[in-house]
Simulated scan of single mutants.
Amino acid sequence: MVWNYPEISKEDFMKLLKGFVDLLILASGFQSSGVPAHWDAENCKKALQWGLFFEKVVRGINSSDMFGESMRELDEAILEMKANPLFPKGLEGLSSDTLLKGREFVLEHLMNVSTLKDKQLQAILVAAVESGDGITDIVDGMLCKRQAVVSCVSALETGLKILYNNIERREPLQREDKDTTLLGSGQQPIELLTWNIWQSKGVSYFLSKRTLRLVSGASLIFSAPKAQWAEVLRRLRVSAENDDDILIEKIELLLLGCVTSRWTHLIEGLMSASYKSVTVSEQYEELCKLLLQRSKSLKQNEIALNSKVEEILEYLTEILENRFYHLWKLPSALIAAAIPSWSPLFGLYFGEIEKQLKLDHSTTRCCSCEKDLNEHKNCELVERVWCLYVFHICGCH
């Protein structure tokens, strides 16, 4: 094939197109460093002019059969550019067809920003009016579409808030015979009251607005190839004052990335987990058996079905090396739900819990209990054992 369009060379066109991609990334609301990108009317107008430029060029190439070879070369060059693992996933729809609607493509990225503010919307409207040529009709349609989406999201948020508040305020059922809980040291079952508190705590975390936003972000980040999402995590800003905070946020994102595809099932499973009169020792023994029963063939079969999760867990294991204490700062339910029992990380995490349970010195514990395993009743460590038991033995996955 030979490029024969006289107005611009293929090399120059692709160089400009790569610049256009960078502009669209900024139009999506953030710079590559993660810092918000701010748009005024002048910048919006320039972006729309770039969209108009690509409209005219592609329309010119497509206007005559004599430029058919150029159109095919253009399509192949765009496909090659998108095949790069670092190409942004949010722009996978880029093609010669979308370039024929260049201004509309720009507006979609400018107006579909989740954090769109009144000032930015005003800048877009001013730029659209100055660009003219039917673009205001496109803006009007997009505004109506966005309003419908916002209304739907608002209704969902209201419903989630009601559910979240009801769970937070829920009065756990009391045991009718309180004397039956006093079964002796080491054999006291988890009380119904404690079971309900931990269950509500886990569901509250999964349904909180903050968590849902993180899940949405994790779903987008980890839909990209590993090289790309690892670079995104690496670029998260770190300062001397908040190194640990940033690391914990990265760990939380990685854990959420392991469960985004089954988020609804996790919530349903945890909410439906019925009470069992089981002791800490019994839960602990069941988890030990689970570790022993996981055969090599089963592990390989599960990994084959969860290659994306395996990549995330490998990355997570690397950054947690010699820093497992950071896991104590994250919700027990999230860790239990996110780390599958076939992962080596599951054994490492359970091993750390086991060490903590058997420590004799309170100064080194992550809970306030002072003696051995038999004295742990409703502390953080027992909650972590309970979460692992509920998700991996009771089958809340």
Results as ranks from 00 to 15, higher is better:
residue 260 T to G: 06
residue 262 R to N: 13
residue 263 W to K: 03
residue 264 T to H: 13
residue 264 T to E: 10
residue 265 H to M: 13
residue 268 E to H: 14
residue 269 G to K: 05
residue 269 G to S: 08
residue 270 L to V: 15
residue 270 L to D: 01
residue 271 M to T: 11
residue 272 S to F: 12
residue 273 A to G: 07
residue 274 S to M: 10
residue 278 V to G: 00
residue 280 V to T: 12
residue 280 V to P: 00
residue 282 E to Q: 15
residue 282 E to R: 14
residue 285 E to D: 11
residue 285 E to C: 09
residue 287 L to H: 07
residue 288 C to H: 13
residue 289 K to Y: 05
residue 291 L to C: 09
residue 292 L to A: 15
residue 294 R to L: 13
residue 294 R to F: 14
residue 295 S to W: 08
residue 297 S to E: 15
residue 297 S to V: 15
residue 298 L to N: 11
residue 302 E to T: 11
residue 302 E to L: 15
residue 303 I to T: 12
residue 308 K to C: 06
residue 309 V to W: 06
residue 310 E to Y: 10
residue 311 E to K: 04
residue 312 I to H: 07
residue 312 I to V: 04
residue 314 E to Q: 14
residue 314 E to C: 12
residue 315 Y to G: 08
residue 317 T to M: 12
residue 318 E to A: 12
residue 320 L to Y: 00
residue 321 E to M: 13
residue 321 E to S: 09
residue 323 R to D: 10
residue 324 F to L: 14
residue 324 F to E: 07
residue 326 H to Q: 10
residue 327 L to H: 03
residue 328 W to S: 10
residue 333 A to C: 13
residue 334 L to K: 02
residue 335 I to Y: 02
residue 336 A to P: 00
residue 337 A to S: 14
residue 337 A to T: 03
residue 338 A to I: 05
residue 339 I to D: 01
residue 340 P to H: 01
residue 340 P to D: 05
residue 340 P to F: 02
residue 342 W to H: 04
residue 344 P to C: 02
residue 346 F to M: 06
residue 348 L to H: 12
residue 350 F to T: 01
residue 351 G to Y: 01
residue 351 G to R: 05
residue 352 E to L: 07
residue 353 I to K: 00
residue 354 E to W: 09
residue 354 E to T: 14
residue 357 L to Y: 04
residue 358 K to M: 08
residue 358 K to T: 08
residue 358 K to P: 01
residue 360 D to E: 10
residue 360 D to M: 11
residue 362 S to P: 06
residue 364 T to I: 09
residue 365 R to F: 06
residue 369 C to D: 09
residue 372 D to G: 09
residue 373 L to D: 01
residue 377 K to S: 08
residue 378 N to T: 12
residue 379 C to G: 04
residue 379 C to M: 05
residue 379 C to T: 05
residue 383 E to D: 13
residue 383 E to P: 03
residue 384 R to P: 00
residue 385 V to S: 07
residue 387 C to S: 14
residue 387 C to A: 15
residue 388 L to P: 08
residue 388 L to W: 01
residue 389 Y to L: 03
residue 389 Y to T: 00
residue 390 V to N: 02
residue 390 V to M: 07
residue 391 F to M: 08
residue 391 F to Q: 06
residue 392 H to A: 02
residue 393 I to E: 03
residue 394 C to Y: 01
residue 396 C to W: 05
residue 396 C to G: 03
residue 396 C to D: 01
